[in-house]
Design a protein around this nucleic acid. Structure first.
Length: 121
DNA sequence: ATGGTGACGACGG
DNA sequence: ACCGTCGCCACCA
């Protein structure tokens, strides 16, 4: 079980029309402070548009898409995919996190990580 | 095994 | 609100 797999597992939980920040995914993945690793992990899946990982739904803490030459256009694609999901971008190409940020009410279901919710009260 | 890198994030001026 | 800078540490060569 690598850190990547945990990151992917969490990313898969992000519902359509909603976004999460790198830091948020990192924390939910049990990797607080490892926002950069999330970006790196998602970089490794750039292809699977038909895959199970909605990598498009992860943006930076500023509510913006991280543009980078390395992405070879996947950054622009990300914007298109989000717009297609009904997410609105401000004229400054920013997403209102207050409105679209994913707010997981229940513990994220990790492959073999316990939700630590056994107490149930 | 060691060292550099990075789709980030928080802080200071 | 903006930009520059350091830190974080798993991944990759």
């Amino acid at each position: 079980m690598t850190a990547y797999e945990r990151i992917y597992a969490v990313t898969r939980q992000i519902p359509r029309g909603r976004v999460a920040t790198y830091g948020q995914v990192a924390e939910l993945s049990g990797l607080p402070g490892q926002a950069r690793l999330v970006g790196y992990a998602l970089y490794r899946v750039v292809d699977p548009i038909g895959g199970d990982i909605p990598w498009q739904r992860v943006v930076n803490a500023k509510g913006k898409i991280s543009y980078a030459t390395r992405r070879e256009g996947s950054d622009d694609l990300q914007r298109s995919l989000l717009v297609a999901e009904g997410i609105d971008f401000s004229p400054d190409d920013r997403i209102d996190l207050k409105r679209y940020r994913w707010q997981p009410t229940a513990p994220v279901a990790l492959p073999d990580g316990d939700p630590s919710d056994a107490s149930c009260g």
